[in-house]
């Protein structure tokens, strides 16, 4: 339960309410290995602790990267961190995305809003072993053009010939020439083999529900759909009971679940 002190190496502003921290271990803590989709508990001295997914490159274990949305006291205080500041880290926790199981398959990544952050490590992993996967499509939807996360990286990825990158916004802005419409409208346009595709979805629950419906329409097997769930978390290790989701603990049985495993409770209200 002890947070390890990490030093802030860099703070990068992403959008008006999101920022990325690059952290390095102190006190001789060197590498930090994690699986794409896992999360850490980040602690701000005296203020509190929050669960944040890891959004860096799993191959680069020297730097720990977290993209955070400032929506509460703790995350807002983290927004004020500067290079050289110390932050506490516990983790990594949870089960991640099925990047190994997806080898040999087409991969469909559907992200909504800040939900792109826990999927970015998947992208790094897929691209570092590009030959092991079939078609890869990233479908990303967010609120407005100025809410687009990692826009430079998305641009770079879009310029590759071996990737489909589609970005949409719920609300257009004046100079936006791109797609307008919810992320589910991108699904019929993506090119993949529904019978051999593994889908990884992260975003607000309602967005994931609509997305799954659209994927099923295209014939993607339920057993190949994976979702990342969010619940209140205090401990990260299954002691505190807060993150219960039906019979599961999101912190240790998730946050990534095969849709099949939670399908029976996925649409039950207030579970």
């Amino acid at each position: 339960m002890l947070p390890h002190p990490f030093t802030v190496e860099r703070v990068r502003r992403e959008t008006h309410d999101t920022f990325t921290l690059e952290l390095k271990g102190t006190n001789g803590i060197g590498g930090f290995s994690f699986a794409p989709g896992q999360f850490n508990m980040l602690y701000r001295f005296g203020t509190g602790e929050v669960p944040i997914s890891i959004s860096g490159d799993p191959e680069r274990s020297d730097t720990l990267v977290h993209t955070i949305r400032a929506v509460g006291t703790v995350t807002e205080s983290m927004e004020r961190l500067k290079k050289g500041d110390i932050i506490g880290v516990r983790g990594p926790f949870g089960r991640g995305w099925p990047v190994l199981e997806a080898r040999g398959c087409d991969v469909l990544i559907v992200a909504g809003g800040i939900g792109l952050a826990p999927l970015r490590p998947v992208m790094y992993r897929l691209l570092s072993r590009r030959e092991q996967y079939g078609k890869i499509a990233i479908l990303y939807g967010t609120r407005t053009p100025s809410d687009i996360l990692y826009s430079k990286e998305l641009e770079q990825w879009r310029s590759r010939f071996d990737l489909q990158v589609r970005v949409t916004v719920d609300r257009g802005e004046k100079d936006w020439k791109g797609h307008i419409g919810v992320v589910t409208t991108l699904i019929p346009r993506a090119s993949f083999d529904p019978h051999e595709a593994v889908a990884m979805i992260c975003g607000p629950e309602v967005m994931m529900r609509f997305t799954i419906r659209e994927l099923e329409k295209r014939g993607v097997r339920r057993s190949n759909i994976h979702v990342s769930m969010e619940r209140n978390m205090k401990c990260g290790i299954g002691f505190c009971g807060h993150c219960q989701y039906g019979p599961t603990f999101v912190c240790k049985d998730g946050p990534v679940f095969p849709y099949e495993k939670i399908e029976h409770i996925f649409r039950i209200r207030e579970i």
Partner: peptide, 10 residues
């Protein structure tokens, strides 16, 4: 019943 929470103080 085992549910618990943690609180941080300064």
């Amino acid at each position: 019943c085992f549910c618990n929470t943690v609180e941080d103080f300064t």
